[in-house]
C-alpha cells in the first residue's frame, strides 16, 4: 500500500552512486508515461515495475530499492529502454544496484556461475573434461554414422579461419547436442576450431553487477581467440 512520503527522509545517495557509475543515466528525463511498464513482464513482481523503480530512485527511497529483490526479477532485457521515448536505460541502473549488494547477500547460484566463469566456464567442468567429451562424442559419431566418418571437431587449431565458442551446458549435461553444429560446419566446409580454455559461450558475469569480473572474462576470451590467429569469432547464441 502506498503511503505519503516523509520529506525529511529523502535519501539521494543511491541516485548519486548510479549517476557516477552511469553518467548518461538521464534519470530526470522520465516523463512517467509508462511505456516501460506496459511492455515489461516484470511489472508487478515484488510490487515494483520500471516506472516505480525510477520514481523510488528520484524520490530518494534508497532503503526500499536496496532491499527489493525486484532487481533479480528484472532480466536486464532492455525492452523498457527500447520503448522509452527519452532513451532511459533502467537495466543499467538495475545492474548498478546488483553490484551494490554485498557478494554474500546475492543469489548464491548466480554469483557462483560468475565465480566459476572466472576460472574457465560457468558449470565449472575442468578444461580437460571438455576436450575429452568433444573427442569422445566425435569418435562415437564417426564410428556409428558412416556418412559422417570424416566429421571433425578441432581444438586449438592455430590459424583456422573461424573460432567457435561452446555453451558449457552441452559438454556438461547433453554432449550429443554439440553434434548438429559440427555437422553444419562440416557441410559448409569451413575451417574452424574450438579452444581448450576460455571456451564458454555464455557469460554470467554480465549479470552479477561487477564490471571488473565481466571485463576479466571477456579479456581472457579475446586474448585466447586472438592467440589462435583466427579471422572470425563465432558466437553460438
Amino acid at each position: 500500500m502506498a503511503s505519503p512520503l516523509e520529506i525529511n527522509r529523502l535519501d539521494q545517495r543511491l541516485k548519486g552512486i548510479i549517476t557516477d557509475a552511469f553518467p548518461q543515466a538521464q534519470i530526470e528525463y522520465c516523463l512517467t508515461c509508462g511505456m516501460c511498464v506496459s511492455g515489461c513482464p516484470a511489472s508487478g513482481i515484488e510490487g515494483l515495475d520500471p516506472r516505480k523503480f525510477l520514481r523510488l530512485l528520484l524520490l530518494g527511497q534508497d532503503e526500499e530499492l536496496l532491499s527489493s529483490n525486484w532487481i533479480y526479477a528484472c532480466t536486464l532485457c532492455a525492452r523498457c529502454r527500447h520503448a522509452c521515448p527519452m532513451g532511459i536505460d533502467i537495466g543499467r541502473m538495475v545492474y548498478v544496484l546488483r553490484g551494490l549488494r554485498p557478494r554474500e547477500e546475492r543469489p548464491p547460484n548466480l554469483q557462483r556461475s560468475c565465480d566459476l566463469q572466472k576460472q574457465s566456464n560457468s558449470t565449472g567442468i575442468p578444461n580437460e573434461d571438455f576436450v575429452w567429451v568433444v573427442n569422445d562424442v566425435l569418435e562415437e559419431v564417426r564410428e556409428n554414422e558412416p556418412e559422417w566418418r570424416d566429421l571433425r571437431a578441432p581444438i586449438d587449431k592455430a590459424g583456422a579461419e573461424y573460432y567457435l565458442n561452446q555453451n558449457a551446458k552441452e559438454p556438461t549435461v547433453e554432449p550429443e547436442e554439440m553434434v548438429p553444429l559440427w555437422k553444419i560446419l562440416h557441410a559448409v566446409g569451413i575451417d574452424w576450431t574450438y579452444s581448450s580454455k576460455w571456451w564458454d559461450g555464455a557469460n554470467y558475469c554480465l549479470f552479477t553487477g561487477d564490471p571488473e569480473d565481466w571485463e576479466f572474462t571477456v579479456r581472457k576470451q579475446a586474448e585466447t581467440v586472438d592467440a589462435l590467429g583466427v579471422r572470425y569469432y563465432i558466437n553460438t547464441e
Binding site: P41, E46, N69, T75, P107, Y204
Partner: peptide, 19 residues
C-alpha cells in the same frame, strides 16, 4: 520489440522460481 522469455539476466540461476 519481442518480450524477454524471463530466463535471462541470471534469472535461471537466481533461485526466485515463482517470480
Amino acid at each position: 520489440n519481442n518480450y524477454c522469455c524471463g530466463g535471462g539476466g541470471g534469472a535461471l540461476q537466481s533461485g526466485f522460481v515463482d517470480n
